[in-house]
């Protein structure tokens, strides 16, 4: 019974989320768009830090590159923003190759600093790109965004202005991205490669001795998460509509918040980021009027989690109840010959 109940509940939640632009207010759609995008970033960072052991403090590099890639496609080459999204993601993935080549030489904590320096290099480098506004940034042409395919159909469905239809479209794309990330992460972690990755995390020496190549696996995760992060960056800035190097490469918005979300929810668990983003959104609504207090609270919660419940809210929940929503472990293979006489 329990086995049937859960997929049904999940399905209902997804349907409800998908119907939101039709039934909910525009402000709520915009809020949840942000939440979904942070969730995509959190799922990506969790794959990196929680499963591949790559604690990156520089993921804002790929958010910014994806966003600027999309802007370049639209402004310089007159392409559709949605095509720009894909190209932005691919550019982020392509650039992650030299970044990996450099940062993978640095082990452990050095890696975090290396990725941070790379992100700052990307920010300063992009600031030199005068065609896209240099250091002050530029805006996405409204016409290009409002002529995206499907906008007219969405207007017919939900009513309201073109801008509301753009919000709805970006919201659905973000929701689709979350679903795709969740399914892809689960499939990847359950696969042979994911098993190898978790083996490396739990015991690198033992993993190597059974033929797992840690560097190859980690590089693969780094590349794939750069792609996901880049697409998410492009999507964020279609909706925001204005870009500047400081906003696109913001350490606080695209990495610090994401790290707190993952840590609070439960690092190294798949549902952890989902729980974390809900807590994050709740806190944000609760403390919205207090500005800096909110960040202090977030920091203190992060520290407390690391001190007292290292696996976060979800990890603690699994430990107490022994019930895992999305189990990643495999059952031990059955012995080939029966042991019973």
């Amino acid at each position: 019974m329990r086995k049937m109940l859960l997929p049904v509940l999940l399905l209902l939640a997804v349907i409800l989320l998908a119907a939101l632009p039709v039934i909910g207010s525009r402000a709520l759609v915009q809020d949840l768009f942000m939440v979904l995008c942070l969730l995509v970033l959190a799922l990506n960072w969790n794959m990196l830090a929680g499963f591949a052991g790559l604690v990156s403090v520089g993921q804002q590099a790929f958010v910014g590159i994806g966003a600027y890639g999309m802007f370049a496609c639209v402004i310089l080459w007159g392409m559709d923003p949605l095509a720009g999204l894909l190209i932005g993601g691919l550019v982020a993935m392509a650039l992650s190759v030299p970044v990996a080549f450099f940062t993978f030489r640095l082990n452990g904590a050095y890696f975090a600093i290396g990725t941070w320096a790379v992100a700052d290099i990307a920010r300063l480098g992009i600031s030199q790109w005068k065609a896209l506004g240099g250091g002050t940034g530029t805006a996405l042409p409204k016409a290009a965004v409002q002529e995206m395919p499907g906008i007219e159909a969405i207007r017919a469905l939900i009513g309201g202005s073109k801008a509301a239809a753009v919000d709805a479209l970006t919201y659905w794309l973000a929701l689709a991205l979350v679903m795709a990330m969740l399914v892809a992460s689960w499939a990847f972690l359950r696969s042979r490669m994911g098993l190898g990755l978790q083996a490396v995390r739990d015991n690198p020496v033992a993993a190597r001795s059974v033929g797992v190549d840690p560097v190859r696996l980690k590089a693969l995760v780094f590349l794939l998460t750069a792609f996901g992060t880049g697409i998410c960056g492009g999507l964020l800035f279609i909706q925001i509509g204005r870009i500047s190097p400081d906003a696109a490469f913001s350490l606080l918005d695209w990495t610090a918040f994401v790290i707190f979300i993952v840590v609070i929810g439960g690092i190294g668990t798949l549902p952890g980021p989902v729980v974390g983003v809900l807590v994050f959104y709740g806190l944000q609504r609760l403390l919205a009027d207090y500005g800096t207090v909110y960040l202090i609270v977030l920091g203190l919660i992060g520290i407390a989690i690391m001190l007292f419940a290292r696996r976060g809210l979800w990890g603690g929940f699994i430990e107490r109840t022994g019930w895992d929503l999305l189990p990643l472990s495999h059952a031990a293979p059955r012995p080939i010959t029966p042991t019973d006489p």
């Binding site: 904590a109 202090i296 977030l298 920091g299 203190l300 992060g302 520290i303 001190l307 290292r310």
Partner: peptide, 19 residues
């Protein structure tokens, strides 16, 4: 594990800055 000290000092950084 290098993760906990990194995250604790990161949290501390945010707390000090905003305080």
């Amino acid at each position: 594990d290098i993760l906990p000290p990194l995250l604790v000092t990161f949290g501390l950084s945010v707390v000090i800055q905003n305080a």
